[in-house]
Amino acid sequence: MADDILELKGISLSFGGLKVLSDVSFTVPEGKITAIVGPNGAGKTSLFNAISGFYKPQAGEIFFKGENIGHLHPPKRAKLGLARSFQNIALFRGMTVLDNIKLGAHSHLKTGLLAALFYIGKAQREEMALREEVETKIIDFLEIDHIRNMSVASLAYGLQKRVELARALAIGPQVLLLDEPVAGMNREEKEDMARFILDLNQEWGMTVLMVEHDMGMVMDISDKVVVLNFGQLIAQGTAEDVKNDPEVIKAYLGSGNVSDMRRRLGVEAAGSE
């Protein structure tokens, strides 16, 4: 059994009166692919934002490699090894693909202003070492060598997503957080992305935590699936376990019971005769 690299304990988050997450606890095993699924509005992206530090949960703790990281700001968490991609592409549109990826490595570089202005010795060596690493490890791996010098604004959606993954890899993460990596993609692009995620996991030993709507992909590649519904964790386990869990089936397909639905929507007071 693999060790857990990331552990969430009793995470609760609300915006004003709106309860987004209530008492969510689960673990992410190291070197595995974990997926968070759930119907729209289940709180998946909010959970992601809590993990990467954009939202501060009102209750609960987040442990990364046994260390409580709940109080750290997003850049600090990134530096520790939590890299994320965004649901809506957040690339730097004025830069080339190569520069976008290089920016991922920003906090590992040391060149100062003077060295940068004159591009002397150390600055040049650092840039060249970075270029080589980016080229051999990331660009080759993700098969984006043909677009490396293009501006990201001119790329197709699927490629932009791939560049975003490349940039997240350049951070040098230990856990990769992917927010809907295949949303809006066509079948071919989805298959490519699934293949990259699997390769990352198998060849690099990367721990992946992803939010995804595409059930087919989730069931195919995940080692562990966590199901959220209305901010509550309703099931977790292997893809097979989760698929047959009655709670999950109810969440996705409904139970056929009207009062059940009313209860879930929180309208029992208004709806009861």
């Binding site: 530096k79 004025g94 920003h106």
Partner: peptide
């Protein structure tokens, strides 16, 4: 021109294009 070839130039452009994701990537 040299600045643009190094991390500092890239960080400047990142701040211009999308300051929030620049911050996530560790650009102060």
């Amino acid at each position: 021109r040299n600045l643009l070839r190094t991390r500092i130039g890239r960080a400047f452009i990142a701040v211009r294009d999308r300051d929030i994701s620049a911050e996530v990537l560790g650009v102060d």
